[in-house]
């Protein structure tokens, strides 16, 4: 007899999410301390970020979270086809987010604004801290987005093949939880980085 414990699996996922929250928590702590020391310079530096792209990405991520949540409903109702479609939309959203980030980072790196660059070192201390935090936080977030995308791709394939179905879908739920975590972190990153002008 195979041991199966969906609640246990979900509990495990939640505990893992706690570690992720505290992983980013360490960064937010650094942000808080730096913001405290360099409040004005953070305001100035934030002008260099493109709030429009930030907003687009926020909307994209929120939509992707909703589609993941809906895909669970679809699987519960036995509609695997719709679930695959919804998951596919989620992955498209992730791709859009990445493309936006590519242009956002690309532009900054193009004008020579990246950690360790000559331009960066010539900036005031507070601005250096802001851009370092910007790169580190969004970079780590992006890494999680990629991992989440890989997880959801696997999940999508399993929904397609029927391994995940109306009577057995904890894997989808856990993949969804991870994806919402990525969204959660962005919900805080967005105002703290883009909207402090």
């Amino acid at each position: 007899m195979e041991h199966r414990d969906d609640i246990g699996a979900k509990l495990g996922m939640w505990v893992f999410i706690f570690t992720e929250i505290l992983l980013f928590g360490g960064l937010f702590l650094v942000y808080a301390i730096m913001r405290l020391s360099y409040s004005n310079e953070f305001h100035q530096a934030a002008h260099h970020l493109n709030a429009f792209i930030g907003t687009i990405n926020t909307i994209v991520l929120l939509v992707s979270s909703a589609t993941v949540a809906m895909s669970i409903t679809a699987v519960q109702k036995g509609n695997n086809k719709l679930a695959v479609l919804l998951l596919f939309i989620t992955l498209i959203c992730a791709a859009v987010f990445m493309v936006n980030k590519y242009f956002e980072w690309g532009h900054k790196i193009h004008i020579g604004l990246y950690p360790g660059s000559d331009l960066m070192v010539s900036l005031s201390h507070g601005q250096v801290m802001f851009f370092s935090l910007y790169y580190f936080m969004t970079g780590l977030h992006m890494f999680h987005l990629v991992v989440g995308g890989i997880i959801l791709t696997i999940v999508m394939i399993k929904v397609q093949t029927g391994t995940i179905n109306a009577s057995r879908y904890v894997l989808l739920e856990n993949g969804g939880l991870y994806w919402h975590l990525v969204d959660l972190i962005w919900i805080f990153l967005f105002p703290l980085l883009y909207l402090i002008t």
Binding site: A69, H180, F188, L192
Partner: peptide, 15 residues
């Protein structure tokens, strides 16, 4: 506002 959004995500999307 971010906290309110997080609360909504936690309670609804994250079930």
């Amino acid at each position: 506002i971010a906290s309110v959004k997080a609360y909504i995500v936690l309670t609804n999307f994250m079930h």
